[in-house]
Design a protein around this nucleic acid. Sequence first.
DNA 1: ATATCATTCATCCTATTGGATGAATGTTAT
DNA 2: ATAACATTCATCCAATAGGATGAATGATAT
Lengths: 126, 126
Amino acid sequence: MNANIDRALVALADPTRRAILTRLSFGEARVTDIAAPFDMALNSVSKHIRVLERAQLVRRRRVGREHLLSVQLATLDATAAWIEAQRTQWSARLNILDELLQAEDRADARRRGRSRRPAAKKRSAR
Amino acid sequence: MNANIDRALVALADPTRRAILTRLSFGEARVTDIAAPFDMALNSVSKHIRVLERAQLVRRRRVGREHLLSVQLATLDATAAWIEAQRTQWSARLNILDELLQAEDRADARRRGRSRRPAAKKRSAR
DNA sequence: ATATCATTCATCCTATTGGATGAATGTTAT
DNA sequence: ATAACATTCATCCAATAGGATGAATGATAT
């Protein structure tokens, strides 16, 4: 499961591959078509396509001698969703932590109230 | 603007760095603390942290001799949002294309109706 | 059958990256 | 002042990734 996310993130982490996806958002295209606008050998583009394919961000449909590629939006969705989920989970943890620290502060304040001994305790960063 | 997204995606495309972010979701930590669970030299972890910092996924707060790191959730949000935006844009383009193709098909059907000459025209892939 | 076109395979080269190591820098404690 | 600690800097190394090139494979057209 996570290996897929990994492949997708790796695939998206390259500007050429993102450009290829953008190109495909205008419709199916052959390897040659995709390569045309790039100042790069056809073979290099072919390699990038394979990376996108392994990440399931792109689908290949062979028709005769040409390979027609298309974007696989679902995977892109899944990737954004994964990041968003991480964000939520991490944020939740930090909130819990913050509440704990605030409770601790209140306890400290009570103790200070009893013993008149103000101690400098720094608040954790945002 | 896009250079930031690029750095964030590159940073997220590594499992060690994602693990570091997860670690930081439990709260601020020093470089040494972050490095502890990893079977990896402190220096290597330090390098990963710099990558996360450049991508603004992590913030550093120097307090005395220790460097306290924390997750910068906003950037994570921005990254997910960027992917989601791409998805939306690309999906919209594909929808337009699909409508165009359907309109074309209907036109073909009308022409066939007038001239009795059925031509095999293949529908584009999903 | 042959030439042409579309694509991948196999290599090779270079730059970058993940990692290790030892020295250098800056901070705290004694 | 000195020792211990926290971290980075400067290198080095191996593995990987991006890119190029020429040959091989497969399909189409003549």
